[in-house]
Nucleic acid binder design. Structure first.
Lengths: 248, 248
DNA sequence: CGTCGTTTTGACCGCCTTCAACTATTGTGG
DNA sequence: CCACAATAGTTGAAGGCGGTCAAAACGACG
């Protein structure tokens, strides 16, 4: 890892402002939050479940996976964190991380001391509320994933995941015209959907055959938005993004 | 439903005090929180996904399920709420419920206006922190459920669920000597684990055959704690209860 | 050009689902 | 107190979805 001193990027501020209104004072205090910038190469672990942390991360650039090890040595990915997300904000109040964090792509993170964050929350309740809300949304996404892996068939699970990622990336301005960079290998998809690598491959072929998507070289294109949403039983409400752009 | 005016029971206060230390003033303000008491008969819906609520519930007595409908008309249960839990606290900041709430047993609930709760949080930051923390724990449980339904086999899923419920009920003083009332039908278990009703039945027989549990008439007895924990790959950390009482 | 990770294909097998029927238990009204 | 209905649990048989194993094709990169 490579460390640099810096100040908070726009990523977090943008995220929080999508949840609550911030005054100029709050915005500038947020910008002045002292952070340590951290660069992590692709594939590297950022922290492990059980780690006791005195700071938490903000994703500035890149894709981060949240995962848990299972007995057989396999991983279950429980969520993906994108720029603006704080994948271990839970540690602010609970002290121990309860999942592994790994950089899927090369990532730029900001590390914020819990003490700094806590005093910021004390001074500006609106910021505390925004952070709280962001953890609620994260919880809501976990809950939807329970439904996804618990009750849908392989093609539906993948369709749902693609809809979710497209929606979130659009909200970040990282997708346009139903095209986005989604740098996940089929192994990542398998670990996120609770399927085997091989069955993911075959299910992707099925989605292609039905002309719903193309997905090559980490680039996802959705050809039939409503068709994919139907296949994945996708309803964007649980993501709580302002204007989802999916018609039911 | 049957409504009565009343004041907050000990259930919530006890729950919050397990998460943060409260001053006597905070404790009494919490007790003075105006609530409307609601009694719900077994099997009845409490609210639906998508409802816009101006108040939220505290479970005082009984078992509540959180669930989402899927396309085929089936349900996926995403969590169980026990006394002291606030299963739709999410609505405090996000306005819309994102799951159905249903009374599994006859339930006594307390309904608290969001405005009252919000002003209480504003006056006592420690209470806000405790509530925030409780939502973080709930999120942590969702995350573990993703792992459970995403990566474990039938018997493991059930074993894990039983370990979780036993741990939580113990923390509430509702279990003793590895015995607790767990008023869930096999259909509930199926909906919570993402299995079919029939396979739940057969997996339960397997757990009994291995002399890990008995489970009849809504009463769970764990005969082999470590064996069950191993089968379910259960590690109580994610529940964030003070003293779990499971040896690794 | 060889190496390593990723994707793809084929064959086989098993966990779990589905369908159908039967039993046990609980509750209700005559 | 019994008849009946309704709910919950159990058993059997058949079949499908997806897992596992093995190997080949493909692509990126040094």
């Amino acid at each position: 890892m490579l460390f640099t001193k810096a100040f908070t990027s726009q990523a977090l501020a943008a995220k929080l402002e999508s949840l609550v209104d911030l005054s100029t004072e709050e915005r500038s205090s947020l910008g002045a939050l002292p952070i340590r910038q951290v660069d992590v190469p692709a594939g590297e672990l950022i922290c492990r479940a059980g780690d006791q942390l005195s700071s938490c991360f903000i994703v500035l650039e890149g894709f981060v996976s949240l995962s848990k090890e299972t007995a057989a040595g396999t991983r279950q990915i429980t969520a993906f964190a994108l720029p603006g997300d704080m994948p271990d904000l839970l540690g602010l109040h609970l002290k121990v991380a309860n999942h592994d964090l790994a950089a899927i792509t090369p990532c730029r993170l900001a590390s914020v001391e819990h003490s700094d964050l806590r005093s910021l929350c004390r001074t500006f309740p609106a910021i505390a509320e925004a952070l709280w809300t962001s953890t609620l949304v994260a919880g809501s996404v976990f809950e939807e994933w329970v439904v996804n892996v618990g009750s849908r068939k392989a093609t539906s699970r993948l369709a749902h995941l693609f809809c979710e990622m497209m929606t979130r990336l659009e909200a970040l301005g990282l997708a346009r015209n139903d095209v986005c960079d989604l740098p996940l290998t089929q192994v990542h998809l398998a670990e996120a959907t609770g399927l085997s690598r091989i069955h993911v491959n075959r299910s992707l072929q099925e989605l292609r055959k039905q002309e719903l998507i193309t997905y090559t070289n980490g680039r996802l294109t959705i050809h039939d938005r409503t068709g994919l949403a139907q296949m994945g039983q996708f309803d964007p409400d649980y993501l709580h993004v302002p204007r989802p752009g999916w018609r039911t």
